[in-house]
Design a protein around this nucleic acid. Structure first.
Lengths: 187, 187
DNA sequence: TTGAACTTTCAGAATCTTTTGAAAGTTGAG
DNA sequence: CTCAACTTTCAAAAGATTCTGAAAGTTCAA
């Protein structure tokens, strides 16, 4: 069935983006809500969003809170209005870098520490060639994690990359390269 | 509580990688299983994996099937042995590119088509400045999707990038840039 | 301070995902 | 062919996650 009204078209787009967002590990509702706000261009209230997207007030509330935590939607003050209004962040780069940054923090923090702990134990308790090889493979895994972190870091550091301007990609390429080579020299 | 035995250390590492993998939208079991195989270095049978990871035979079977679908683990034939053995793919680049590729296919296929359909409807049914602005925002969203696809494609095209050799990152940077600029000229 | 308008919270319902355990299926040696 | 060894499949259980609807909380105008 083809969408025929303006609202159905909006939902079609919202659901498409919702699926992308879900594919990357978030709730579909986040993508749907952001899309409606983005396409509208202006600021909308929670009730109106809930009606357009067929979501309950409760779901709307948690969704909007989470979107704000990701700095992907912000609350705007409309003078004379009692209720809260929300509008979409339109800077794609800001949104992506926020998400990538969050995931990198996770990698950097907990994971490397745990791998390191595992390696330390293996080093102590193990004897023989097989055990040594195991320690060394774990080391390679950690080296890869470090490498990935470096790539992500430089990606984030190139904060001025604007996906709308192709020219700047050049800068990204250079920065990633420079950072990675620099780090390699140190170790 | 600190791990003290070799096996506890193995589980510590496996759980860490399991969490990373879960963070990127897969089942934890996939990451845990791959890690045990990777650290072991050799080929292991399903029963042994299940025992080390405390997983049932059924879970082991589906997990190994899925890991093979992602080409991240492969079955190996051991002459004289009745049961199947499995070993880990150790090429990180192969694994990552496979996953990125899969996600790109999703973006390229369904999503752009749906956004386009929504835009077509909006174009027809809408009149007035606000409606025109909405169509144009949807256009910007689609342009971004195309851009993202291009970046991912060039990333994938630079198949020789080896995360273990920093030097090759230079090639990645160049290729991404070249591909993006080329595509921009065409449109 | 009160009441209306709105938002947040949260227990329970609904839904989706993953695991288990056992039955059914497959394979190869003898 | 038959049995034993192994693997896959699948229904039901367990476990997570997300949503609803209503109660509680907040805020502001009067």
């Amino acid at each position: 069935m083809e969408p025929t009204t303006e609202n159905e078209a909006e939902l079609l787009a919202a659901d498409a983006i919702g699926d992308v967002i879900e594919h990357w590990g978030f709730r579909k509702a986040l993508g749907r809500t952001w899309t409606v706000l983005y396409l509208d261009g202006g600021a909308l209230g929670a009730a109106e969003l809930g009606e357009r997207l067929q979501m309950s007030a409760g779901a709307m509330s948690t969704t909007l809170t989470e979107l704000q935590r990701w700095a992907v939607v912000r609350k705007v003050w409309i003078p004379g209005e009692r209720r809260d209004f929300f509008e979409a962040e339109t800077d794609f780069w800001k949104m992506i870098s926020r998400v990538v940054h969050e995931r990198e923090r996770f990698l950097a923090g907990s994971v490397r520490e745990r791998l390191g702990r595992a390696q330390a134990v293996l080093r102590k308790t193990s004897t023989g060639a097989a055990a040594r090889a195991r320690v060394e493979r774990l080391g390679r895994l950690m080296a890869f994690a470090t490498m990935a972190e470096t790539v992500i870091e430089s990606f984030l550091a190139s904060r001025r990359v604007d996906f709308g301007e192709f020219g700047n990609l050049l800068a990204l390429g250079r920065q990633v390269t420079a950072a990675a080579v620099g780090k390699a020299r140190k170790s």
